[in-house]
């Protein structure tokens, strides 16, 4: 929306333009008094200008007659935008299928499972896969990886997974194709490592501080498309005696993360531990941090053992049916059972 379309008197408009205001977004954060000072006009006039803005913003959607509330979009717009979105592949086709293409941007996804099931592996895999260049069907974004005391993140493993990812890309796209030549430079494991912003935290105070700081960080690094918190749980499980307090702090945390995911159009993935819960006379596995926390994520995926097979199960999702898919953790990272099966078996340990 341009200033020139603003329904205000032409003299005010020319004053605005003279001062370099061409865009509505540059106007909206201003207060009337500052604007008045800036343009050397009456305060009332400044108020008049600012009042005109939200009205104008709605008429931005002039082609859709539903823009009644400022900032509102129609479900149709949302749907078409969602269909335009690319998703972050997990590396396992079956899992991508039940997730509707992969991990979605603008959503908070929680992944939980028993120790050793591959939560961190999935996290690293996503941090690598989000960087697959657009030409190869990826997002070409970057990742923020926040590791707490518990997290088993290892740079060495990230390097291996990046190499595995690159070699798979090269299998699918033969090396002599034109696309390959254009982004040959980017397909190096070291570049993938550089695309992961790795934060380490040692207490939940630091955890909150980093998440508060993220907004700043993401404003400066707009290409970040994925934020992973490797275990939201550890510090919250050990440091809190007052559960009501913990619920409030966690509530604030999840609101912030939701807001970040929407504002910056990125995916947030939280890794969580599982714990046992006593229901109906038997102990069941459930994600840690309690019931109120379970409402704070858009999607929940539980990783579990099914005999000797690893399985991912969608426990909660607003748009997807509950389903489960088997997956493998191989030397190259997360892979499907069927694809690359032979290669997965022969990976050196």
């Amino acid at each position: 929306m341009e200033i020139s379309n603003l329904p205000i008197s032409p003299s005010l408009r020319s004053k605005l333009l003279a001062k370099g205001y061409t865009n509505l977004s540059s106007l909206s954060p201003l207060s009337p008094s500052i604007l008045a000072q800036e343009l050397s006009i009456q305060c009332e006039e400044a108020i008049e200008i600012l009042r005109a803005i939200p009205h104008a913003t709605t008429s931005k959607n002039a082609y859709t007659p539903h823009g009644i509330i400022p900032g509102a979009v129609t479900a149709w717009d949302m749907l078409s935008e969602e269909q335009m979105q690319r998703h972050i592949s997990t590396g396992c086709n079956d899992l991508d299928t039940i997730l509707g293409g992969g991990i979605h941007c603008k959503e908070v996804t929680e992944v939980g499972g028993v120790p050793g099931i591959g939560k961190t592996q999935l996290g690293i895999q996503l941090a690598v896969n989000v960087q697959i260049p657009v030409e190869y069907g990826g997002l070409g974004g970057k990742a923020v990886y926040i590791v707490d005391t518990e997290g088993s993140f290892m740079a060495e493993r990230a390097y291996q997974i990046a190499e595995g990812c690159i070699s798979d890309i090269l299998d699918i796209f033969p090396s002599n194709s034109r696309e390959f030549l254009s982004c040959k430079e980017r397909l190096r494991a070291n570049n993938f490592l550089d695309g992961i912003f790795y934060f380490r935290i040692c207490s939940y105070t630091e955890q909150i501080a980093v998440i508060n700081y993220l907004e700043n960080f993401l404003t400066q690094n707009k290409d970040v498309k994925l934020v992973i918190i490797d275990s939201v749980t550890f510090h919250f499980r050990q440091d809190f005696d007052d559960l009501a307090q913990r619920t409030r702090v966690l509530g604030g945390l999840s609101l912030r993360l939701m807001k970040l995911s929407k504002t910056f159009n990125l995916a947030v993935v939280l890794l969580n531990q599982v714990t046992t819960k006593f229901t109906d006379g038997s102990f069941q596995l459930t994600l840690a941090l309690g019931d109120s926390w379970s409402h704070s994520c858009t999607n929940r995926i539980i990783l579990h053992w099914n005999g000797n097979e690893r399985c991912a199960y969608i426990e909660k999702s607003p748009s997807l049916p509950s389903a489960s898919a088997p997956y493998l953790v191989t030397g190259k990272g997360i892979r499907g059972i069927n694809s690359n099966f032979k290669r997965a078996r022969t990976m050196p340990s």
């Binding site: 290892m154 380490r200 935290i201 105070t205 909150i208």
Partner: peptide, 29 residues
């Protein structure tokens, strides 16, 4: 000591700005 510090940190981070660690520095482990 815990609730107080958590409340503070929500308002304004007390720590210096967190800096991401370049992963290549962590190789080899």
């Amino acid at each position: 000591s815990i609730p107080q510090s958590s409340r503070d940190s929500f308002a304004k981070p007390q720590h210096p700005l967190p800096i991401p660690i370049p992963l290549q520095l962590l190789l080899p482990h």
